[in-house]
């Protein structure tokens, strides 16, 4: 019986990102060996997260409250919205500590292959936000992939009626990147987006 429970747990843990059956067994054994130190606090944390974390009704970020800390923060610019694909992208932008506006999480990108249509993305909620909020600029911070850029152009088209500035992240040479190792597409984009010094 106990073996069945353990096997069930190992199977579930192995389905988590970055883990396989072998690493899952190691994680489970480690938790069982350190019951007081790791297992019980982890159970407590997981149950709290399950009970309390929800999507922000404004931007789609994850937070304990219905409106997230970023949306509530009065020091953040209300007239600046950065559109990102996922919460992970929001976290990546937050790590820069450069951006002081608000966010809007799309929930993915348009994909003909995966069958993701505009209706499945949070574009309608972005439009209703723009109607309510006195926004002057929308920054489209979506992956530099074919699907990502298709989505960026689609959003820019949809938001054209709002008479606001629509910008997107620059594409080009990464920090520490050597031109010799870059692909021709990246160099072409970097040349097109060159700045005056």
């Amino acid at each position: 019986m106990s073996e069945q429970i353990l096997e069930k747990l190992i199977k579930k843990v192995s389905r988590l990102p970055g883990l396989g059956p072998r690493s899952s067994r190691r994680v489970v054994l480690h938790l069982l060996k350190n019951k007081e130190k790791y297992l019980l606090p982890l159970i407590n944390d997981l149950s709290q997260v399950a009970d309390n974390i929800k999507s922000c009704i404004e931007c789609g970020n994850l937070d304990q409250d219905e409106v997230c800390e970023i949306c509530k923060n009065p020091l953040r610019k209300n007239n600046l919205i950065c559109v990102v694909e996922t919460v992970a992208d929001l976290w990546a932008l937050e790590r820069t500590q450069v951006y002081d506006g608000k966010y809007h999480i799309l929930g993915g990108v348009l994909s003909a292959i995966d069958g993701i249509n505009p209706e499945q993305l949070n574009i309608n909620s972005l439009e209703s936000r723009l109607k309510k909020q006195n926004c002057t600029e929308v920054i489209i911070a979506i992956s530099a992939t074919l699907d990502g850029q298709t989505t960026a152009h689609y959003i820019a088209d949809r938001l054209n009626t709002f008479n606001i500035k629509i910008t997107r992240l620059a594409h080009g040479v990464p920090i520490g990147g050597e031109l010799d190792f870059l692909d021709d597409g990246t160099i072409a984009q970097a040349l097109k987006a060159r700045n005056e010094m």
Binding site: T145, L146, T150, A156, D184, Q189, K192
Partner: peptide
């Protein structure tokens, strides 16, 4: 050999044509 998609990122019609 050639990064076609990267060269046309700024042209929405070309991106759609490529897709």
């Amino acid at each position: 050999i050639s990064s076609v998609s990267g060269k046309i990122f700024d042209n929405k019609l070309k991106i759609l044509a490529l897709s």
